[in-house]
Design a protein around this nucleic acid. Sequence first.
RNA 1: GGAGAGAUGGCAGAGUGGCCGAAUGCGGCAGCUUGCUAAGCUGUUGAGCUGAUUUGUCAGCUCCGAGGGUUCAAAUCCCUCUCUCUCCGCCA
Length: 426
Amino acid sequence: MLDAKWVREHADEVRDAAKRKRMDPEVVDGFLENDRNHRLVLQQVEGLRADLKASSSELGKMSSEERKVALGVQRSKKAELKELEQQEHELRVVVKDFAMRLPMPPAADVPDGLDDGGNVELSVSGPIPEKDFEIQTHDDLGEKIGVIDIKRGVKIAGSRNYLLLGDAARLERAVLNLALDHMMKRGFEMVSVPTLVNRACMEGTGYFPGGEEQAYLAERDDLALVGTSEVPLTSIHSGETLDFHNLPVRRVALSPCYRREAGTYGKDTKGLYRVHQFWKVEQVVLGPSDEAWSLEEHKRMLGHATDLMNLLELPYRVVNVCTGDLGQGQVQKFDIETWMPSRGAYGETHSASRFHDFQTRRLNLRYRPEGKGKPQFCHSLNNTVIASPRVLIALMENHQLADGTIYVPEVLRPYLGGDTVLRGNA
RNA sequence: GGAGAGAUGGCAGAGUGGCCGAAUGCGGCAGCUUGCUAAGCUGUUGAGCUGAUUUGUCAGCUCCGAGGGUUCAAAUCCCUCUCUCUCCGCCA
C-alpha cells in the first residue's frame, strides 16, 4: 500500500509505475477520484458531527421543557447525518479497494521490460558443466535409480505431485538443513511458522487481493495455505510498534509451500520444476524506514543465497528483474537462476525482493525511531535461501557422474552421513 | 464439540448511558535533588484521519478486540464475528 497523501501529490509517478509494471493505470485515477469525493463527504460528516455533539452535550443540562424542543432539532440533523455517513462509508470501502491495488513504483535501476524476457543479467557464476556423457534429466535418472516417483505422486494427489524416496528424500532434507544452519550462522533466528493463515496475512503481504487463484483456500475457516513462509514471517509483528533497538529483525523459516499454479497448464509439465507442494527455506528481514539501509540489506540477503549456491558448487546467474515481471508491491527484485541441463537453460530458483513499506503499511507494522520521533513503517525484504525439489534438479543434473550416480558437494556430506556419492536404489 | 468468563492506553487495572480519550499504579521521557542506600520529588508521556498553516503548530473528527444496531447522547445497552481463559469431551 502507498501513503494516500503521497499518491495525491505524485499521481503521475504512480500512473507511470502502473504502466511499467503492465498494470492498468486506471486504478490510479479510480483511487484519486474516489479519494477526493470521500474527503469531501468526510468533511461534511465531521462538521455535522461536531455540531451535533456540541448541542447534544447541552441537552444533559436542560430542563425537560427545553429538552423537548431541542430533541426535535437533533432528530432531523441526525437523519441528515445518517445519510451522509452511509455515503462516507461506501466511498471509504471503494477508496480502500483501489488503494490496495496501487502499484509500488519500481526503483530507478529496474530495467523496463514486458516479461521475464526483459530481465537483465547482472552476474554469472561457475562454468556450465561440460561432460563427456549424456546428462540424464533428473526425472529420468530419479525414476531409474528409484528415488523419484512422479506417477504414484500423481495417483495420490493429482498432477504436479511427486514422491521422493531414499536418497532423493535424504538429499532434500540435507540441503534444507544445510540452508537453515547457513542462515543461523549469519545471525538469523529460525522460526517455525503456521502455513495455514488468515486473510489479513495474505492481504498484508500483498498476495490478496489478486492472488486468490494461486492459493489453496480452506474456505470453511476462511484460511489460506501459504505459497511461501514469507507470509507468516512478515506478518509476525503486524499491528505492533517495534522498538528501534530491536531492528533489524532477521528471521529464517523452513516450511512447506503450496501453489495452485493456475494458468500454467502445459507449462513445465515434465519433472519436478513446477509442482504444487514444495519445501522452502526463506529469509525475511524487517528494518528501519531507510532507503540506503534497505538497499544494502537487499544485497546482503542476495549474498546469503549466492554464498550457499557456491557452497553447493552449482552454476548460476543473477538477473535484475524487469518492470513487467515485478509484482505489485515490489520495488526491486533480483532472481537467482540456476543452470539446469535438462532445460538447457537457467531456471529460477531464488527471488530476492525489497518492498519499501508496501507490506508494512498493509500490516500496520511500525517501529519507534530513536529519540522522540513518531512511529514509522518498517521496510521489509525477503529472499529464498533454498527451495526443493527445484534445487534437486540442479544438484542431480549438474553433479551427475558418468555411471549415473550423483556427486555430493563437500558441504552436504555431514548431512548425509559422510556419503560422497548417492546411487539411489540402483 | 459442550458449558461458562472475559477482551480498556507500552504493561497492570478502574470505569454499567452525558462530567470519559478514559482514574490509579508501573514503565518511558525531561528536570530537580543526591545522606530517606541505583532512592526521593516535580512535570510529562497513545494512535489515526481531515482541514488550515507564518511548517512552530492550530482546529475538528475517529479509535476502549472487529463490524453492525438502539439512543438526542455508548467504553458502558443489544446483535454478529474474532480471539483469550476455566471446566468437560475428543485427540497427534
